[in-house]
Design a protein around this nucleic acid. Structure first.
Length: 467
DNA sequence: CGACGGGACGC
DNA sequence: CGACGGGACGC
């Protein structure tokens, strides 16, 4: 790529997988024009227009590398079929063929909307859907079962409508689900499975000709849903924020208002007006929502309280081309300002947070020290605690609240479907302190056994991941 | 007692 | 239809 550090020229093209776009455009399109129109969708690592060796003229083939697959997918969905320069042909946008791999599968027909996950055997298809719907609209969920006994094998598929949703799920879901892109089903089986209309994939889509991106979602005829119909161009501008500590409406507003374009922010309350620990935020444009999610998901506010921010469907129609152009303009300005500007911590520093009420969400016989800041998620684990709950596991947020107070907590891990969990610490002494203080104690009526965890098994003979 | 991992769809 | 370049930190 033209602006790549030389070192990464060829090695990082497919890291992470499906983060690079293959763009067919007019020969007149320049790298700068591509960068301008694609930078709205994420962090561009490189843009390259393929040119003839001798004449130096563009061949109309371009590559755009993003730092994340979800950004590349989103850009593909939004930009495919767009006219970049008046009077030129609409561009075509696909996820680029992996360069390292020798096999030459046709990526245009590649399934990018179905993920493969590992789940507790107790999960129903409804549980699966409930777990993964926060990342996007789900077409269907399937659990692999023993065909005679009907018992779950602990494996499942989740089909989204759009590649960006599948990518967001893979990037953001709990690691214990081991979410990866599902391998396409075998050719023979694909024909009449999920479409009563029985249209071959790809053909119908390509016949759309110069109206590639114009045909709307076929709401009236859900039975005839070609798999490639995700390219109709919309993505949620709405975010759901979850917080463990009780935050006020004003605090949340101030935080999300740091990203330009916020037009709605409301703390969710129950029937008694108490905070439910969630807030809905909507931005005026896609770019702002993507950016806010990227920057605020995992952000600690106040320190020690890690926020979770995810997309939610707002069910709106976002197909107005005028609105999208305005969005791209604003988002481009905003992003270049922030990305080239001061560091994240400065940008995100809120104007001083008032005391966060401890809101009796944790009842315990322990005299808890105050909340402490979490260690960064990528910290090296120096000690793990193994915790057994009786009679049933405590929620993640409560555990984080309790176990972070001895310092250096990296993350809480609950084993799905079991009554045990792991607490990962960046400092051994902190872990020991937590163990000493919390072993045998009762939190919200749940008794905890707290022990040093056995070291995790060496992972060695694992087959390489398929994506 | 109470343990993380693992992996594929009736063609 | 429409698939992969150029150039090189500083020990």
């Amino acid at each position: 790529m033209e602006d790549y550090p030389a070192k990464q020229g060829t090695e990082n093209l497919d890291d992470p997988p499906n983060s690079r776009l293959f763009v067919v455009a007019s020969r007149s399109v320049t790298e700068d024009e591509l960068r301008d129109s694609f930078s709205v969708f994420g962090d561009i690592q490189g843009v390259w227009v393929v040119k003839d060796k001798q004449t130096k003229e563009s061949k109309g083939i371009c590559y755009v590398k993003f730092s994340k697959s979800s950004q590349a997918c989103l850009a593909m969905e939004e930009m495919h079929g767009k006219v970049l320069v008046d009077g030129t042909k609409p561009i075509k946008v696909f996820i680029a063929q992996s360069r390292s791999s020798t096999r030459h599968r046709d990526v245009e027909d590649e399934e990018l909307t179905r993920i493969f996950v590992m789940i507790p055997k107790t999960f129903s298809e409804e549980d699966l859907k409930d777990t993964f719907k926060e990342y996007g609209d789900i077409e269907y969920c399937v659990i692999i079962k023993n065909k005679f006994t009907g018992e779950s094998k602990g494996l499942g598929y989740v089909r989204y409508y759009k590649p960006s949703q599948a990518a967001v799920a893979i990037e953001n879901c709990d690691k214990t689900y081991r979410a990866i892109l599902a391998e396409p089903r075998t050719k023979a089986a694909t024909t009449e499975e999920y479409s009563s209309g029985g249209t071959a994939r790809g053909g119908e889509y390509m016949n759309a000709g110069d109206n590639m991106n114009q045909y709307a979602f076929p709401m009236a005829d859900p039975g005839n849903y070609p798999v490639m119909d995700y390219r109709s161009g919309d993505f949620t501008r709405c975010l759901m924020m979850s917080t463990r500590a009780a935050l006020t409406q004003e605090q949340i507003f101030a935080l999300f208002d740091l990203i330009p374009g916020m037009e709605y922010c409301e703390l969710q309350r129950d029937a008694y007006g108490m905070s439910k620990g969630h807030a809905l935020i909507r931005y005026s444009n896609l770019g702002s929502a993507v950016y806010a999610k990227d920057k605020l998901n995992g952000f600690e506010y106040p320190p020690g309280n890690r926020l979770a921010v995810n997309f939610v469907d707002d069910g709106e129609d976002r197909s107005s081309p005028v609105g999208r152009m305005a969005m791209q303009f604003v988002a481009t300005q905003m992003m270049s300002a922030v990305w080239n500007g001061p560091s994240t911590s400065q940008v995100m520093k809120p104007p001083g947070y008032p005391p966060v009420s401890q809101m009796s969400r944790v009842q315990t016989d322990v005299n808890l020290p105050p909340l402490k800041k979490l260690a960064p998620p990528d910290s090296k684990s120096k000690e793990r605690l193994f915790v057994v709950f009786s009679p049933s596991p405590l929620p993640m947020d409560v555990l984080e609240d309790v176990f972070c107070r001895y310092g250096s907590l990296i993350e809480v891990h609950l084993v799905p479907g079991r009554k045990v969990g792991y607490m990962k610490y960046a400092d051994k002494q902190c872990a020991d302190d937590a163990l000493a203080a919390l072993h045998g104690r009762v939190v919200n009526g749940v008794k905890m056994k707290v022990m040093l965890a056995d070291p995790p098994r060496e992972e060695s003979h694992k087959r390489p991941r398929t994506y």
